[in-house]
Design a protein around this nucleic acid. Structure first.
Length: 287
DNA sequence: CCCACGACCTGTGGGC
DNA sequence: TGCCCACAGGTCGTGG
């Protein structure tokens, strides 16, 4: 599922169940996800209390009262299901169209508030680690990470700085978490379309006016998606229509062959492959 | 520095 | 129905 809006949606869904809760029981059903769990993973978590649940880019961070921070990444197919008391506080987030396959239930957390949270991840591109809280910022995952796109440190200036003189295409630069942290394939396609920037041209040649539009487009598309509860592509459907429906608002992603939605544009959405990943765009209005 | 590409892993959907 | 291939939201590493 997860780019920034989806991870933020998950964070908001889990927060009522985890914030301030003590982990009374933790089970790891295997020794690794993408990476091996750290030494003593289960023991270090069991009995600890979660101070808060934060997000940085696509990572979830749960600082614990013991000085460690539980760092979690959903990879491509990571998903949390929640059962028990705290589920009621945020209906919708965990109402999936299809039940999770129990064979992919890799980690289970139970809390002192009578809640069970299960992490499922069929492809196991997700991962979890425990990092000393004061060392999180310096950790390689975070040290070179760019600004949060929805925060004040990100704006046209950042894009102008990062795009200057670069031959790489804008998609590559936006997917690079050092430029700005939290975008993935979908929202990059959407932002470039909104800003009318061609994914085929070198980044260094994009005019400043367009980079200003791009910064606005990035913020807008992410904010709208967060507001919609993220996007649900294949395995997940929001309940009650209030969560996880942003996929209906995609202008180009997965819309190959459809008419370009730009006002007055007669183009058709194309799909091409760049760096092994699909790019959806309109070659008429993205120049 | 810049690409293109493959690797990691499993599931799903389309075409035949 | 079954089979095979292409493809999937992310990240990391290699080699030219």
């Amino acid at each position: 599922m997860p780019e920034l809006p989806e991870v933020e949606t998950v964070r908001r869904g889990l927060e009522p169940a985890l914030k301030g809760a003590r982990l009374t029981r933790v089970v790891a059903n295997r020794a690794d996800l993408r990476f091996a769990f750290p030494e003593g993973f289960v023991q270090r978590l069991t009995g600890a209390s979660v101070i808060e649940l934060k997000r940085r880019a696509k990572y979830l961070l749960a600082p614990l009262d013991r000085g460690d921070t539980l760092v979690m990444h959903l990879g491509m197919t990571g998903r949390f299901d929640i059962e028990g008391a705290d589920k009621q506080e945020r209906p919708g987030v965990f109402h999936y169209a299809a039940p999770a396959n129990p064979k992919h239930a890799h980690v289970v957390f139970e809390t002192d508030r009578g809640c069970r949270i299960t992490f499922y991840d069929p492809r196991r591109f997700g991962f979890m680690d425990l990092i000393a809280t004061e060392a999180v910022e310096a950790h390689p995952w975070f040290a070179k990470m760019g600004p949060e796109p929805l925060g004040p440190e990100f704006g046209a200036g950042r894009l102008i700085q990062m795009f200057k003189g670069r031959k790489q295409g804008p998609k590559t630069l936006l997917l690079d978490q050092r430029t700005v942290a939290g975008l993935g394939n979908i929202y990059v396609c959407e932002a470039l379309h909104r800003a009318h920037i061609s994914p085929l041209k070198p980044s260094g040649g994009v005019k400043k006016a367009k980079l200003k539009a791009l910064a606005v487009a990035v913020k807008e598309v992410l904010a709208e998606a967060v507001e919609a509860g993220g996007s649900s592509i294949s395995d997940y459907a929001g309940a009650g229509g209030e969560l996880g429906y942003f996929q209906h608002s995609f202008r180009v992603y997965d819309r190959e062959g459809e008419a370009c939605p730009t006002k007055g544009c007669k183009g058709t959405i194309e799909r091409i492959v760049q760096a092994g990943r699909s790019t959806f765009f309109c070659r008429v209005c993205q120049t």
